[in-house]
Each structure stands twice: as C-alpha cells, then as structure tokens.
C-alpha cells in the first residue's frame, strides 16, 4: 500500500452516469489486476474505494458510476486537479490458474477490473473470452476496447437492445479453462451456479479503511473469516460461503 498524490489527466463520461478518470502518479504499489484504490475527497470523511481498470508505470485508470455524493464530486473534477489516493489495496486476481482459454465475466461497473486482467492474459498468449453484461444498450461501455485487445467479446443486455438478450449466464461458452468475474452479487451467485470450472470472483462491501485495520468489511468463507479489503476482494469459487 502506498499513499500518494495523483493528478487527474482525464475525466470523461462513457455513458450517462459512468465516468472514466485517468490519474498520473506513483503506481508502484499496484501489483495485480483486480486491486483497488481508496480515494480521499474534500468534505467526505471516508475514502471511496474504486477498482483499478488499467495501470502502467505512470498512470492508472478508474471507471466509476456516479451513485452518491462522493462520486458526484469526482464527476465534477477537471484535469489538473489532484487527489490523495491509497494504492495497491486488496489481493487482485491470480493469473497462474488461468489455463489456455480463460473466461472473463463483467457486469456493469464490474467490467472495469476485467480490462487490465484481459490485457495481461492476452499478453501471456491465452485465448481470452469476455462476456460483458449490461441492462440496456445505452449503458454499454468498453465493448470496443476489449475487442481491440484481441478478446472474443460477447455483450449481453437484459432488455435485448444489444447483443445477447438476458444475463451473462445466458452467454456462457461450452468450454473454458477458468473463469474470472466481477459484478453485482446476484450476478456473482448466478455465475457461481452456472459455471463448471474453477474460478475467481471479486466482491464488494462498504469499507471503513480499505487496508485491513477496521474489520468493517469482513465476510465468512469456507476457509475462515476474511476482510474483503485485505484478503479479498477476490475470492476463489471453492471458498465462497453465500449464506453469511
């Protein structure tokens, strides 16, 4: 974990209420796809945890949905403004069990962490399939970006306005070596039931600190109590206990 100041170099809308922000600064604490950052905002007491969509040596990209006061404040920020950010939080996805044909499933604002993961898996030479789930056509983002990485991309919309009609689980391929997913909990549950291989799922919870100090985001797993922010947010399918 590292605390440092980042400078906004881009803050643009992708859809009506989903924004992409690119921040320049020290990204050295980020070690894996699927980790998150915790952002301090003027006038807000707690930081806002947001997953990392992509990163390199100089900058990181986040994609966030405007849902409350904190994210509305972020939406109003312009390039040149600075943010105090804790980086390198959480465990992130384990690439070593991907196999040669991994399946990535993102739902809504669960799509962003799949991007850097896909990039890395493609670079490793794997054949990457991606399913992106949205409610309706106007909410879709990053379809082209995933295609540009060379992934086999399927988009699903609940209302059928674009791609496959239905949920991400209506578009599962017949074969894949391992799955990675992030999205709302009902989607994670459906993916858990419908998938046939081992996999990794990223969870969300209201957090206090984001770095393991407050025990605000604990959950029960089959391998013991875990902090979503520290031992998570990524859990293995085999260890998940849904009835907590």
């Amino acid at each position: 974990m590292k605390q440092s100041i980042f400078t906004i170099i881009e803050n643009t809308p992708l859809t009506r209420d989903v924004m992409r922000m690119v921040l320049e600064g020290d990204t050295s604490a980020i070690t894996a796809s699927g980790q998150f950052v915790n952002i301090q905002l003027e006038g807000q007491f707690l930081r806002r945890p947001i997953s990392v969509c992509d990163y390199d040596d100089q900058a990181l990209t986040i994609i966030y949905k405007v849902v409350g006061k904190g994210t509305a404040q972020m939406q109003a920020m312009v390039p040149g403004e600075q943010l105090d950010i804790l980086t390198g939080l959480g465990n992130g996805y384990d690439l070593s069990c991907a196999g040669d044909h991994p399946l990535l499933i993102g739902g809504g604002v669960g799509v962003p962490p799949m991007y850097n993961l896909a990039k890395k898996l493609v670079k490793m030479g794997e054949k990457v399939s991606v399913i992106l789930g949205f409610n309706t056509k106007s909410e879709i983002f990053y379809e082209e970006e995933f295609k540009a990485l060379g992934c086999d991309v399927t988009v699903t919309t609940v209302d059928g306005s674009h791609g496959v009609k239905g949920f991400v689980t209506n578009a599962l391929p017949d074969t894949y070596s391992h799955f990675y997913t992030c999205g709302p909990e009902p989607m994670l549950k459906a993916v858990y039931k419908a998938t046939t291989t081992s996999g990794q799922m990223s969870f969300e919870e209201r957090m206090g600190c984001g770095f393991g100090a407050c025990m605000g985001c604990s959950c029960k797993t089959l391998t013991g109590y875990k902090r979503i922010c520290k031992e998570g947010p990524v859990m293995r399918k085999e260890e998940i206990a849904w009835n907590n």
């Binding site: 807000q44 007491f45 707690l46 904190g70 919870e205 209201r206 957090m207 206090g208 407050c214 025990m215 605000g216 985001c217 604990s218 959950c219 029960k220 109590y225 907590n244």
Partner: peptide
Amino acid sequence: RFGNPTPRIAECTAGMINAVGLQ
C-alpha cells in the same frame, strides 16, 4: 467473535458509524 453482519460502516458528515461488533 465474527461480529455483526455487514454492512457495518456508514459515512456521516465529519465522521462515520461502525457496527463491527468486536470481531
């Protein structure tokens, strides 16, 4: 102790609420 069910944390003006429950 595991403590209380989540969510355990709430943002407030100039503060926060926690209900960790002595985990």
